[in-house]
Amino acid sequence: MQNSHSGVNQLGGVFVNGRPLPDSTRQKIVELAHSGARPCDISRILQVSNGCVSKILGRYYETGSIRPRAIGGSKPRVATPEVVSKIAQYKRECPSIFAWEIRDRLLSEGVCTNDNIPSVSSINRVLRNLASEKQQMGADGMYDKLRMLNGQTGSWGTRPGWYPGTSVPGQPTQDGCQQQEGGGENTNSISSNGEDSDEAQMRLQLKRKLQRNRTSFTQEQIEALEKEFERTHYPDVFARERLAAKIDLPEARIQVWFSNRRAKWRREEKLRNQRRQASNTPSHIPISSSFSTSVYQPIPQPTTPVSSFTSGSMLGRTDTALTNTYSALPPMPSFTMANNLPMQPPVPSQTSSYSCMLPTSPSVNGRSYDTYTPPHMQTHMNSQPMGTSGTTSTGLISPGVSVPVQVPGSEPDMSQYWPRLQ
């Protein structure tokens, strides 16, 4: 039975679970980093996980050691009161100082060594604690504590007292930064006198190289990059290397530039699409467009005044059976039934097929058609009795279509119309 579990990581490298990497692998990681390889490249070359490479390099940059820390136990506290007071002093002298600059000053002034120097995250935590204590304490208590930490007896009751030896409130920041720059020169002199001055200088240079600022491109470089971006948004590694040799930039910087440029292009394309949609959409909808001609068919113009009344309900007709019959029939052209047409008796099958359309009241044959006459024609229609054979009435077949029909004066039988409509 094995005491430890061995495995293979996602890159194909072998590791022992819970145990640190061998010293030979750690040394190779540092050597590759000094030669300029990126952590992701080191991870692929040595088949070590990216997190492990970053952790080893980060500890090497901070402490200069590649040895693993002790497994188990607690780390001794490195942010001692003396170190905290120095950090507060540096922050007062130059409020814009960075944590890694404070760390360098602690090393250069001999406050800490490589073994007990606090990390950048520890210094940031100390600065946050100082800021929170400043908010919790009152103004007087804060000034007393700062005077105690600074070891001075001057008056701290006013704002300019934060910067000793100065009279203009805006000047101390520059003086403090100048003092810090002077301390940086002392850093070089002190570290050069040490035993491991060369190694420390190499480590600091490598650290500065990794902690780079934003790349500033010249106009020629920007023009070359934009020209390549117009050709393709995704250049391959050969195109990037050719462009890197042409404009004297690292291939990694060119790759990052193209990634950022593609993101910018997507944002601009989104804005262009929004403007295009806004320009195509009308600002207001016309009133006429809300009524579609496919839904509402136009009603033909009436030929006679009587045809303006298109349904039985508008003429005072309360018989719903006839109203439904007229509205359900398709529109037909106007025609006239003459008196000489043969009077065919209704076929029983045809009569039964339209039995649902006729009223059940037996008085329908005896009703006159003056009910369908509009009010303004009552006088004219009353002067001509319906009993004469020459009287013409208008029957409504569908809305908007008038059918003048000659009705025999002897017997106005409704059943004569249905064979004609089939």
Rank of each mutant, 00 (worst) to 15 (best):
R128C: 00
I117L: 07
S49P: 00
G51P: 04
D140G: 10
V30D: 03
M148E: 09
E133I: 12
E62Y: 05
K134M: 09
P68L: 01
S119V: 03
R59P: 01
P20Q: 02
S96C: 08
H34K: 12
S24W: 10
M137P: 13
I29K: 01
S108P: 04
S4M: 12
V14S: 09
R105A: 12
I42P: 00
H5W: 12
S43M: 06
N9P: 00
S54N: 15
C52L: 02
C40N: 13
D23H: 08
K86G: 14
C40Q: 14
F15V: 04
K134G: 09
Q136Y: 13
R59D: 00
Q2Y: 11
P76K: 08
V53G: 01
I45A: 14
L127D: 03
S49I: 03
M142Y: 08
M137V: 11
N129L: 06
R77L: 04
A79C: 00
H34Q: 12
N116S: 13
W100H: 13
G73K: 00
P95Y: 13
D115R: 09
V84S: 08
N9K: 01
D41L: 07
K86T: 13
I45P: 01
V30I: 12
K28T: 09
A37T: 09
G12S: 03
S121T: 15
E93F: 10
C112S: 15
I117Y: 10
D41E: 09
N116F: 13
R44V: 08
S121K: 00
M142Q: 10
C112Y: 04
C40I: 12
N129S: 12
S4P: 09
D104E: 07
R147L: 09
E31I: 06
S96W: 10
V14M: 09
P68F: 00
G73E: 01
E82I: 07
N3R: 08
Y90I: 05
G36Q: 06
I56N: 00
A99N: 04
E133L: 11
K28N: 08
I123V: 06
K28V: 06
Y60F: 07
G138M: 13
L130E: 15
S74P: 00
Y143I: 11
E109M: 07
D140N: 10
D144G: 08
I97E: 06
Y61F: 11
G72F: 01
K28E: 14
R26I: 01
P20E: 00
H5R: 06
R92F: 10
S121V: 00
S65G: 05
P81Y: 15
F15N: 03
F98M: 06
S43W: 01
D104A: 11
P95A: 15
S108E: 14
Y90L: 10
M142T: 12
V16F: 05
N17S: 05
L106V: 06
Q89A: 13
A79M: 09
P20R: 02
V78I: 10
C40A: 15
L46Q: 04
C52W: 02
N17A: 00
N17C: 05
L149V: 10
L32K: 04
G73F: 00
G141A: 09
R38S: 06
E31Q: 08
G138L: 12
T113G: 10
G138V: 07
S132F: 12
E31W: 02
Q89T: 14
A33N: 15
K55S: 04
S24H: 08
D104C: 12
Q135C: 14
L146I: 09
L149E: 07
I56Y: 04
P118A: 14
R125K: 00
V78M: 04
S108T: 11
I42N: 02
L127Q: 15
V120H: 03
T25A: 15
R105P: 02
L46M: 15
H5Q: 14
A88S: 13
R26Y: 03
Y143R: 09
V120S: 04
T113M: 14
S96R: 12
